[in-house]
Lab assay of single mutants.
Amino acid sequence: MGFKLLSKLLVYLTASIMAIASPLAFSVDSSGEYPTVSEIPVGEVRLYQIADGVWSHIATQSFDGAVYPSNGLIVRDGDELLLIDTAWGAKNTAALLAEIEKQIGLPVTRAVSTHFHDDRVGGVDVLRAAGVATYASPSTRRLAEVEGNEIPTHSLEGLSSSGDAVRFGPVELFYPGAAHSTDNLIVYVPSASVLYGGCAIYELSRTSAGNVADADLAEWPTSIERIQQHYPEAQFVIPGHGLPGGLDLLKHTTNVVKAHTNRSVVE
């Protein structure tokens, strides 16, 4: 069995187990497998329904001669939608809004960016022009300005110390501490036991640490421990890039980060 097929099978099995364990909360999309990078042309966006009122959005972007996937989250909030992270750029984010209108038909009224990198804030200006209120932590807003990236308009308070959590509509926002970046936030959907790890969490097929220019490698494993301790009931975990899975993604990420750190020390 090929690795790609095995990865998709694991996603399907995880979703099936969740649907059985929580039949009222989960209505997993039966329309197909989780979209992969090879299936999404740059400039297009796919939506994948995880649970009743919960979707991931998947886009792709060219970077350094390669094409990478990027995940975000959409959560229903009454007759409105909360968006977590842009679709990595203005063109993708405009396509995301169009796809949401086509498939869901509810307005996106608020959006949260989970850290300051372009795959999370690139497209904020498109959201703002569409009347979406954009939010991020003060740290993310400051770092985005320093980096020359787009800056969300509103500040999220109460997320300055490791372990801080605040309720934001249908989700809980959690600051686990520094990891992929010093400002990275985690998003949890309690009604569906869905954990969105953003770039602080890796997919299972990833074996290298990737972009760690703004990471705190020493603190990252401790931050992941905080996530595990705060959300032990999480059933569906979405990484910032690639295929979702279960809580095993947290341990896998820790292993990859520690291996990278150990290699760096040896070198």
Rank of each mutant, 00 (worst) to 15 (best):
Leu81Met: 07
Gln61Leu: 07
Ile20Pro: 07
Gln228Gly: 10
Gly53Trp: 07
Glu80Ser: 10
Ile227Thr: 09
Tyr196Met: 04
Ala215His: 05
Leu217Ala: 05
Leu249Lys: 00
Leu204Val: 10
Tyr48Cys: 07
Val132Ile: 14
Val171Leu: 06
Val194Ile: 10
Val37Arg: 10
Glu39Ala: 14
Phe3Glu: 08
Thr109Phe: 08
Leu96His: 03
Thr14Glu: 06
Leu159Gly: 01
Arg120Thr: 01
Gln103Leu: 14
Asp64Pro: 07
Ala95Phe: 15
Asp118Val: 06
Asp52Met: 09
Ala133Ile: 12
Ala19Ser: 15
Asp64His: 09
Ser208Arg: 09
Ile186Tyr: 01
Ala51Phe: 07
Gln49Gly: 11
Val146Pro: 06
Ile186Leu: 06
Ser22Arg: 12
Thr36Arg: 13
Gly242Lys: 04
Thr153Arg: 10
Thr153Asp: 11
Val124Ala: 08
Val108Ile: 10
Ala178Cys: 04
Ile84Tyr: 00
Ser181Pro: 04
Ala90Gln: 11
Ala213His: 11
Pro239Arg: 01
Leu9Gly: 12
Val45Arg: 01
Ala215Gly: 09
Ser113Asp: 03
Phe168His: 01
Asp216Trp: 04
Lys251Ile: 11
Asn255Thr: 11
Val266Pro: 14
Ala213Asn: 11
Cys199Phe: 03
Gly105Thr: 13
Ile238Gly: 01
Ser139Cys: 05
Val11Asn: 11
Leu82Asp: 01
Ser113Ala: 10
Ala94Gly: 11
Thr140Lys: 05
Leu156Gly: 02
Leu250Thr: 01
Glu267Pro: 13
Val212Cys: 05
Gly240Met: 04
Ile186Lys: 01
Gly131Pro: 04
Val42Arg: 10
Val108Tyr: 02
Gly65Phe: 06
Ser160Ala: 14
Val54Leu: 06
Lys258Pro: 05
Leu24Gln: 12
Leu24Trp: 07
Ser7Lys: 11
Val45Met: 04
Ile58His: 08
Gly123His: 03
Leu96Ser: 00
His117Phe: 00
Glu150Arg: 02
Ala136Cys: 06
Ser38Ala: 11
Arg226His: 08
Ala213Arg: 11
Phe116Lys: 01
Phe3Pro: 06
Phe236Cys: 09
His117Thr: 00
Val108Ser: 01
Val194Lys: 01
Pro239Met: 00
Ile104Asn: 06
Val132Gly: 01
Glu172Asn: 02
Gly169Ser: 05
Gly210Leu: 06
Gly89Gln: 00
Val132Tyr: 00
Thr86Leu: 01
Asp248Gly: 12
Thr86Glu: 00
Asp79Phe: 09
Gly131Lys: 09
Ile227Ala: 05
Asn211Gln: 11
Tyr188Ser: 02
Glu150Asp: 12
Val166Ser: 07
Glu157Gly: 12
His115Pro: 04
Asn211Tyr: 07
Ser27Leu: 11
Thr60Ser: 13
Leu82Lys: 00
Ser208Gln: 11
Gln228Ser: 15
Pro138Gly: 09
His241Glu: 00
Asn211Ser: 11
Val54Arg: 02
Glu99Thr: 11
Tyr175Ser: 01
Glu203Ser: 06
Pro221Ala: 10
Ser137Gly: 04
Ile104Tyr: 02
Ala133His: 13
Ala215Tyr: 05
Glu145Tyr: 14
Gly32His: 11
Leu185Ser: 05
Val256Cys: 03
His260Pro: 10
Val126Thr: 09
Val256Gln: 03
Glu233Ser: 13
Leu82Arg: 03
Ser7Asn: 10
Pro138Ile: 09
Val256Phe: 06
Asn184Leu: 01
His154Tyr: 10
Val11Ala: 11
Ile186Gly: 02
Ser208Pro: 08
Thr86Ile: 07
Leu173Gly: 01
Leu185Tyr: 00
Phe26Asn: 11
Ser160Arg: 12
Ser27Cys: 13
Ala215Pro: 04
Phe26Tyr: 11
Pro69Glu: 15
Pro107Val: 11
Leu13Asn: 08
Pro176Arg: 02
Asn92Cys: 01
Leu247Phe: 12
Phe26Trp: 15
Ser56Ile: 15
His230Asp: 06
Thr261Gln: 12
Pro152Glu: 00
Val28Pro: 11
Ile84Cys: 03
Tyr196Leu: 01
Leu143Arg: 08
Ala218Val: 13
Gly148Glu: 07
Ile84Arg: 00
Phe26Ile: 13
Ser16Tyr: 15
Ser191Met: 10
Ile201Asp: 04
Ser16Thr: 14
Ser113Gly: 05
Arg76Pro: 04
Leu159Tyr: 03
Thr182Met: 13
Trp88Val: 02
Gly53Asn: 11
Glu157Arg: 12
Gly123Cys: 05
Gln49Arg: 14
Asp183Met: 01
Arg167Asp: 12
His230Thr: 12
Val37Gln: 15
Ile151Cys: 04
Leu5Met: 15
Pro232Ala: 09
Arg263Lys: 15
Gly245Met: 02
Trp88Thr: 00
Ala19Leu: 15
Ile238Trp: 01
Leu106Cys: 06
Pro23Leu: 12
Ser7Pro: 11
His241Ile: 00
Val67Gly: 12
Val257Ser: 01
Arg226Val: 07
Arg120Met: 01
Pro221Trp: 05
Trp55Arg: 03
Leu156His: 05
His252Gln: 05
Val37Lys: 13
Gly246Pro: 06
Gly43Pro: 05
Ile40Phe: 09
Tyr48Glu: 09
Thr86Asn: 02
Asp79Arg: 11
Ser181Leu: 03
Leu9Thr: 14
Asn184Tyr: 04
Glu145Leu: 14
Ile238Asp: 00
Gly148Asn: 10
Leu250Cys: 01
Leu6Pro: 09
Ser30Trp: 08
Val37Gly: 15
Glu233Phe: 11
Ser31Arg: 10
Pro107Met: 08
Ser160Gly: 13
Leu73Arg: 01
Gly123Lys: 05
Gly123Ala: 03
Leu6Ser: 15
Thr93Phe: 02
Leu217Tyr: 04
Arg46Thr: 07
Ser7Asp: 07
Glu99Gln: 14
Tyr231Val: 01
Ala59Asn: 11
Gly53Ala: 09
Ser223His: 04
Ser155Ile: 13
Lys102Gly: 11
Gly122Ile: 04
Glu99Cys: 07
Ala179Val: 07
Ile227Phe: 05
Val189Thr: 03
Ile74Ala: 06
Tyr135Glu: 00
Pro23Asp: 11
Tyr135Arg: 00
Arg167Gly: 10
Thr182Leu: 14
Arg110Ser: 11
Leu96Trp: 00
Ile227Pro: 02
Asn211Val: 09
Arg76Gln: 11
Glu80Phe: 08
Pro152Ile: 04
Leu143Tyr: 08
Thr93Lys: 01
Ala51Val: 13
Ile100Arg: 01
